[in-house]
Each structure stands twice: as C-alpha cells, then as structure tokens.
C-alpha cells in the first residue's frame, strides 16, 4: 500500500513507478511535483523510478498565479 499526501491509499504492485501512482490517483494535471519519502523525484524519472511498498508519496499540483 502506498500513502499519498498523508491521506489517500493506493494499492501497491511489483515494479510500481511514480507514473503508475499518478495514474492510479487519476492525476492528469500538466505539472506535478513528486516526493517519495520526502525526497524530490526529478520529472524525467517519473516513468522509471520505482516506489517501494509502504512508501509515503507527496504529490503537489502547481497552478498558475502569483
């Protein structure tokens, strides 16, 4: 089981990547910043970096405006 944003639970599977977590959460925002166990995942690695079972994943949606 993966915990997202200290709130949502996502079923874990072998070889699960950051992109798989985003897909499971239904996130289709263009710009998402991701952490795994509090460490930033570079965007280029979303499709390749695997997420261990039990991980805490942080997903930040960045919206225009300031």
């Amino acid at each position: 089981m993966i915990i997202v944003n200290n709130r949502d639970k996502v079923e874990w599977h072998e070889g699960m990547t950051v992109q798989d977590v985003l897909d499971a959460m239904g996130y289709d925002y263009a710009l998402i910043t991701v952490t795994v166990e509090g460490t930033l995942v570079p965007e280029d690695d979303y499709g390749t970096q695997t997420v261990p079972d039990g991980s805490n994943v942080g997903l930040f949606h960045l919206a225009h405006g300031g």
Partner: peptide
C-alpha cells in the same frame, strides 16, 4: 502542504484564468 523540504501554500487548484485578487494572493 509539506513533504520533506518542500512546502506548498495555497489551494493547489485555482488558476490565474480566474483572475487575481490582492486579499488571496
């Protein structure tokens, strides 16, 4: 919303196409 050394303030949804208001910014 915080994770590790990243802290994000706001609602993470509203977009500036809605316009910007001093009180909220």
């Amino acid at each position: 919303h915080s994770s590790g050394n990243i802290h994000v303030c706001g609602d993470e949804e509203s977009d500036m196409s809605m316009g910007l208001c001093a009180a909220r910014v």
